[in-house]
Design a protein around this nucleic acid. Structure first.
Lengths: 191, 191
DNA sequence: CAGTAAGCGGGGGTTGTCTCCGGTTGTGCT
DNA sequence: AGCACAACCGGAGACAACCCCCGCTTACTG
């Protein structure tokens, strides 16, 4: 749809270089890596960077698309292999681990979960929300999850827990513990 | 103790002006308000600001000391008036509300809860940790809180939940709901 | 192969952080 | 009161990052 004409070859090349440079830089310096520096690494001018990715957010998202999509696919795989409640729990765990361990991911997922009545439908947000919605509904039908909870709530709380674990210095053990606590609250009968 | 000699009068005056200006600026522009601007508002040079408050964090903390101490006092009041479990819940609620509604507070509380094996014992951290420790121990003795939880865990999770609620657009209703869910997990028998 | 629009790139205005040091001012002593 | 000195002030300026702009280049089309 936004595909009026195939991208010019040089444009495409620069686009991919930027993506690669961005991934490196974000991994190295976190989500606040200098954009000018990313442009330099990619061997392009900063103008080019800003043309392809108007905002830092856009670049962040583009750099992590594959990872996000893997997460979406993972949800379906887990749904097939585990009981609904466990599939959800495990997926949230993996989500949280990613949130913490992949630098820059936190900002991305955070924005995906924001209120955003606005048309802020990022690709990332769509994929993640879709995945969690499937898992949540299944878990609720199986009686493993209270019914007065929206998928987005689960996502937000998981994000919050990831934040909490990060503050703790973030061993994966801590994440599991915290998610476990949250899980007991989410599974409890409503009232 | 850090009181070798009383502050010179002009120094003290500038210190307080800066505090006032900082409170205004943080309220207005959030935790990232321009420090130079704060100096300007206070009618002092930026050098003066940096001498009194070497880091943004230091200024933030100084600007909110009274609020933090109020929170500490509030904990004791609640402990006297309510059952231990409820006192903790209510205090966490007020903490979370403050975290979200008072701009700049989130960064401050966040840093107070960080792993920080380092000697990062900020005044803010000490007060808040002390308050929550009292409430948590009381709640545990009353059987309202599982015993395999450390006070710091509670603090971190509450902070995480506040973050989650903030993403939701943060009505106080949402905070209560999320804290309630978490509370069920924290209260459940361990296992 | 030539015309053309899409794309490039980096210069530079702007804003923010933080340091440095010459000048000023409050304080304690006489 | 007046003096001398340490403490303190203030703002210029080095540095980093953001991001817009516009003249030049280059890939595609016919």
């Amino acid at each position: 749809m936004t595909q009026g004409r195939p991208m010019r070859a040089d444009a495409r090349r620069n686009y991919e270089r930027l993506l690669k440079a961005a991934a490196e830089a974000f991994a190295e310096h976190g989500e606040n890596a200098s954009l000018d520096d990313i442009a330099k690494r990619a061997g392009v001018g900063s103008g080019t960077l800003y043309r392809h990715f108007p905002t830092r957010q856009a670049l962040l998202e583009a750099a992590y698309v594959d990872r996000i999509e893997a997460l979406g696919a993972r949800a379906d795989k887990l749904a097939k292999e585990l009981a609904p409640g466990e599939a959800l729990a495990e997926w949230l765990y993996e989500l949280a681990v990613g949130t913490i361990q992949v630098r820059g991911m936190k900002a991305l997922l955070g924005s995906a979960v924001t209120d955003g009545g606005a048309a802020e439908l990022t690709a990332c947000g769509t994929v993640v929300k879709g995945a969690v919605a499937r898992l949540v509904v299944a878990a609720q039908e199986a009686g493993a999850l209270r019914k007065d909870i929206e998928p987005i709530d689960v996502l937000r709380l998981a994000h919050g827990v990831a934040t909490a674990a990060e503050l703790a210095g973030a061993g994966e053990k801590e994440i599991r513990r915290y998610l476990g606590l949250l899980g007991e609250g989410l599974g409890a009968a409503e009232g």
